[in-house]
Design a protein around this nucleic acid. Structure first.
Length: 597
RNA sequence: GGGGGCGUAGCUCAGCUUGGUUAGAGCACUUGACUGUCACUCAAGAGGCCGCGGGUUCGAGCCCCGUCGCUCCCGCCA
């Protein structure tokens, strides 16, 4: 294979894991790590590992000198050795079908221990049922953990996905353009990581939360199609799927509309999934934000199962039942879902579902079940025959309702729906349901302060029809924004941007940045770019780490990032962040306010 | 910022419910035996600030308080 030649150097001829039966009789020199060895007394087997895989090296008096056998028996696991030998087919009964190289072995004639290893702090070679060491130890000893074939496979896949991204976009005329890491603090959104300026006392750079404004300026400059594998930074509390620095596939293009971006994105996603061995169908399904919220209570619904939410307000409205009556009178609705088989659940199990609903902010969860043809549950006695008819419950079904405003009932029913699906085991783990959620609202009004906030970001364009129909009611405007969703996870999102500087200025005003000099101070460089002649443009950004995680079948971002941070945003291997000498602070015109410093 | 879980040998864990001889097991490690293993096998050995600090008690790995670290979740993440 040509790959073997690529890895041939002055110090080795092949990679361990590349050897096959076709190499039989070849004299090879291998470099690798001692994965495991078996000393049978006068006869030693060593599993030698490199990133391509494992190969068995055999040390036997018939072809190995006594001195070399003694050295092979003594070398510790995880040491680096260079071995010379002959590739030989194994006798049939000694083949190892669990190993890609299991048809052959390397009969060693020489051995050099070039990198002896102390006993590893955490094991690299693991038995079938061995648990992984604690996350803390894996992160502290990252260079050892990264030797594990699983993590190597993840990072190798990550590399391939990056190459596919570059090839796919480059082939479609997109230019890979870089943007600054030292940028300007952003007034809204997540907290910025700040970098003090030495030459400008008291002033700070920020690390970018995303290259958003830069990529729009590229469009204003006529670069037409841009992409970047962009590192982004957000100083917020972490989660299993959230790191303080992360990688986005950032895309922007000119003279395009929403459908163009979606079609382009579908092509890229399909190419990425194909690289990981999955043939997926395009185009993806589409659903409006309003529809998603109505049917699933959530803007990134998991479509692998049903359990859709329905509106039962009409059935409950005439009833003399205080819970639903007061909610409806207050402008709310009675929404809920019918759970097939749920009638068999115990009181306690349904109570647990109610706890889920309450945890999401609902006041309670109403329940009615139908078994043996009759309705049962605390609410059932309030039902008129007409209301019972309207519920349309099938035998064995449990109906769960939340009577409240949509703002309360949607998130509660979303969580209840997910929990019911989990319990029923109806999530098809092999299905992949890609979905575009479109027509997000432009603004969200903070119920406490009454202030408008951008749902996507302040540069998103509003639907022109909505602006014309309700010029003074911005809450009614839908955004030209779209999210790409897979099985309840957001893969990415984007929008068509406002390219008219007057409209952009008005958006800032609606968001509470009315003062013109304030707008110039914060966003002057964007407004200037728009004023200088901006093409219609828009784009999207995908969370690359999450995509790599999904495609490597992982559950933690830490397993697809070479050197990740802990949930406290610490790097355990290098011990960052750390204090610095006070002289360094003085040069930066900083003084610590931490006690004792 | 808030809540849950975990912290005992290099690693994975038991012991904690109900405080009481010398804190155990498997793997790894060291030594010895073993010529076809592939999680080799067998025998022996070494290995402990029970995360840290304080308290209760005649006595604490175990109970209480605090603290640190890791982790999961809520808030947060335009």
């Amino acid at each position: 294979m040509t790959e073997g030649n690529v890895f041939s150097t002055s110090q080795r001829t092949h990679r361990c894991g590349d050897l096959r039966a076709e190499h039989a009789a070849a004299a090879v020199t291998l470099g690798g790590w001692v994965h495991r060895s078996r000393d049978l007394g006068g006869l030693v087997f060593m599993d030698l590992r490199d990133r391509a895989g494992l190969v068995q090296v055999s040390f036997n008096p018939d072809w190995t000198s006594a001195a070399v056998i003694a050295e092979a028996a003594a070398v510790g696991v995880e040491s680096v050795v260079i071995v010379e030998g002959i590739v030989e087919p194994r006798p049939a009964e000694m083949r190892n079908p669990q190993l890609d190289t299991g048809e052959i072995e390397v009969r060693a004639t020489s051995l050099r221990v070039v990198g002896p290893a102390v006993t590893p702090a955490i094991p690299v070679a693991r038995g079938k049922n061995d648990k992984l060491p604690a996350e803390e130890l894996r992160l502290r000893h990252r260079s050892l953990d990264l030797r594990r074939p699983e993590l190597q496979a993840n990072l190798i896949l990550r590399h391939r996905l990056l190459q596919v991204t570059r090839q796919h976009l480059s082939a479609r005329g997109f230019l890979e353009l870089e943007t600054p890491i030292l940028t300007k603090p952003t007034p809204e959104g997540a907290r910025d990581y700040l970098v003090p300026s030495r030459v400008h006392p008291g002033e700070f750079y920020a690390l970018p939360q995303s290259p958003q404004i830069y990529k729009q300026l590229f469009m204003c400059s006529g670069f037409d199609r841009y992409f970047q594998i962009a590192r982004c930074f957000r100083d917020e509390d972490l989660r299993q799927d959230r790191q303080p620095e992360f990688t986005q596939i950032d895309i922007e293009a000119s003279f395009i509309g929403r459908d163009d971006i979606m079609a382009l994105s579908e092509g890229l996603i399909a190419a990425l999934w194909l690289e990981a061995g999955h043939d997926i169908a395009t185009p993806f399904e589409r659903m409006s934000y309003a529809d998603a919220m109505e049917r699933y209570g959530c803007d990134r619904p998991d479509l692998r199962y049903g359990l859709e939410i329905d509106d039962f307000t009409a059935a409950f409205a005439p009833l003399d039942f205080v819970v639903t009556k007061s909610a409806i009178e207050a402008g709310g609705r009675v929404r809920g879902l019918r759970v097939p088989g749920g009638a068999a659940w115990s009181r306690k199990q349904v109570d647990e579902l109610e706890a889920v609903a309450k945890g999401a902010g609902a006041g309670g969860l109403l329940r009615i079940k139908k078994s043996d043809g009759k309705l049962d549950g605390p609410v059932a006695k309030f039902l008129t025959p007409e209301a019972a008819e309207a519920l349309a419950l099938q035998d064995g079904e449990l109906a769960l309702f939340v009577a409240a405003s949509d703002r309360i009932s949607s998130p509660a029913l979303d969580r209840v729906r997910q929990e019911c699906a989990r319990r029923l085991g109806i999530v098809d783990e092999n299905a992949r349901r890609f979905l575009w959620v479109t027509d997000f609202p432009m603004f969200d009004r903070d119920p406490a302060s009454g202030a408008l906030a951008a749902v996507h970001h302040p540069f998103t364009a509003a639907n022109p029809d909505d602006m014309a129909a309700h010029p003074d009611v911005p809450e009614q405007w839908r955004a030209l924004a779209y999210d790409c969703v897979l099985d309840g996870l957001e893969l990415g999102g984007g929008s068509i941007r406002t390219s008219d500087p007057r409209v952009q200025s008005r958006m800032f005003t609606l968001l509470g940045i009315g003062d013109e000099s304030e707008q110039e101070r914060r966003f002057g460089f964007l407004l200037e770019g728009l004023r200088a002649g901006a093409p219609p443009h828009g784009g999207i950004a995908f969370g690359f780490d999450r995509i790599a995680m999904l495609l490597s079948n992982g559950t933690s971002l830490r397993d697809v990032i070479a050197f990740p941070k802990t949930t406290a945003a610490r790097a355990l291997f290098e011990n960052a962040p750390s204090t610095v000498p006070s002289d360094d602070l003085r040069q930066l015109h900083l003084r610590s306010t931490v006690e004792g410093e």
